[in-house]
């Protein structure tokens, strides 16, 4: 019997300050290798969902198991990518990527080798000694992703990672993310406001409805990988984007 990578069992989350729960009765099974995008109107608990999986915030009801473990115990196989690049401005690009390894107390050689490989992977080898303030928004995000990959995670939690980027950069980052994923086979939970981005990236789409936050729709995206920029012009892709947008609008109305 295989255990699901992430298992939500009737999960609820209520903040003491709010009248309605942020999340209610979320039951969901995520298989290894799935790329799940979570979309929904503001305040439907998308980010909260990720924080619960990361163990940064406890469930009020039900439980989450990550690879059979509690979220806090599973942190070693999980990486979180925030909306802002959240780099440490006083560290060079290389030192930022090395942060997790340094905190774990790895040897200097091992850290140097791993960070060098990661910087190559995201195409920033030439910027290893630069400081974050010298980088563009897209480059900062790539550093942030390289940092997240340093611990060799099985699961990536991404909270609107490309929201602050312009559309062209965002499209390119999407393609790069898929390229990396093809090599590393992570399981991804990806929160976004952009339907187009969600459809392009995911194998599965969750549409959340607010007050209280709950799963309104659970859709498969049957477009074949590898996905390329040409796919953005295909009819199948267009149809899916339109259909998803319609579903998203309906959650607004209720």
């Amino acid at each position: 019997m295989t255990i699901p990578e992430i298992d939500f069992r009737a999960v609820g989350k209520r903040f003491s300050s709010a009248s309605t729960p942020a999340l209610e009765e979320i039951s969901l099974s995520v298989e290894k290798g799935e790329f799940i995008s979570i979309i929904g109107p503001s305040g439907c608990g998308k980010s909260t969902l990720l924080k619960l999986v990361a163990g940064l915030s406890p469930c009020s009801q039900g439980e989450i198991q990550v690879n059979g473990m509690t979220p806090v115990n599973a942190r070693e196989i999980v990486s979180f990518v925030f909306q802002d690049a959240t780099l440490l401005p006083w560290r060079t690009v290389q030192k930022n990527v090395a942060l997790a390894l340094e905190l774990e107390g790895r040897t200097r050689d091992e850290t140097a080798m791993t960070t060098e490989k990661l910087l190559q992977l995201v195409g920033l080898s030439h910027f290893a000694q630069s400081y974050p303030r010298q980088l563009s928004g897209g480059m900062k995000m790539r550093v942030s992703i390289a940092r997240a990959l340093a611990t060799k995670p099985r699961i990536l939690l991404m909270d609107e990672p490309f929201a602050a980027l312009d559309e062209m950069t965002r499209d390119r980052m999407n393609e790069e993310l898929l390229r990396l994923r093809a090599e590393h086979h992570w399981t991804v939970l990806f929160v976004t406001h952009s339907v187009a981005e969600a459809v392009f990236l995911s194998s599965r789409l969750l549409v959340l409805a607010p007050h209280p936050g709950r799963i309104a729709h659970d859709l498969r995206v049957d477009l074949p990988y590898p996905r390329t920029s040409e796919m953005r012009e295909s009819k199948e892709y267009d149809d899916l984007v339109n259909r998803t947008s319609r579903l998203l609008r309906e959650t607004h109305r209720v």
């Binding site: 990361a54 940064l56 942190r75 999980v78 925030f82 959240t86 440490l88 942060l99």
Partner: peptide, 9 residues
């Protein structure tokens, strides 16, 4: 977010 990043590690 940075504090949470450190907690994740």
């Amino acid at each position: 977010n940075l504090v949470q990043l450190f907690l994740m590690y």
